[in-house]
Amino acid sequence: MNTIDHHWQRFTLRQKLSRYAVYLVLVLAFFQSIQSVEVIPEFLLDAPEQMGDMFSRMWPIDFAYYPVAVHDAMIETLNIATLGTLITLIFAIPLALMNASNIVNSAWCHWISRFFLVSSRSVNSLVWALLFVSIFGPGVIAGVLAIAFRSIGFVGKLLGEAIEEVNMGSIEALKATGASWMSILLKGYWPQVLPAFFSIVLFRWDINVRESAVLGLVGAGGIGVVLDDSMNLFQWDRVAMSLLAIFIIVILAEIVVVNIRKRLI
């Protein structure tokens, strides 16, 4: 008879307290940041005016600029993204194998591979590009390597997880026949990882198309160089042309990736 008096609660007291603690910390951090961040109110006031000014300068888009410079730069951007994605694989596949606990069973290997994967992901692609520009000089090669090094962490992590989810039955069957480790990798793991592999690579390629469009801002080739040049010369109609080209390419890349993935999976 007592059950009706018993008040149902979704969370225990501890859960509630820790949740409120998180909310409290967030609110405190927010107000602390708002107070100390340097925002100049005058800049905020004329923002709509400035924005309007920018768009009015952009408006008659300079389509004549497309065949002059944008087209070649756009092709270069696509090549940077694709080549960068391919070069990533050279580093990412061994790291993924090292990171998968069902292939290499050693804590040391896991730590080493995880270190490389995490540092590849923590450094932004623009920062990688800055590094490679100072090594190889301005140009396409810095862009390709920046894209490649930035993608290692992403591809390696996801591929490692895909390898760990493999059904071990067929692997054991192969082992029982006395197959060498190379044939186990190629005939046991590879066919099972194949769909995940292609979808990871395509997904990363899609991201890389977006990223390679901005690498030129630090001198690493592609459409970003054209964008940066026309911005420094305040030719906003040409900026608008470059932005439009980037917009179209990004959307096309996404459509291509979605269609291929539908077919693969």
Binding site: E38, Q50, R210, I246
Partner: peptide, 17 residues
């Protein structure tokens, strides 16, 4: 758009910072 491109547009409209 990549955040950097959006950042450029915002830097133009609300200034550096």
């Amino acid at each position: 758009f990549h955040p950097v491109i959006i950042a450029i547009l915002f830097v133009k409209s609300v200034g550096f910072g």
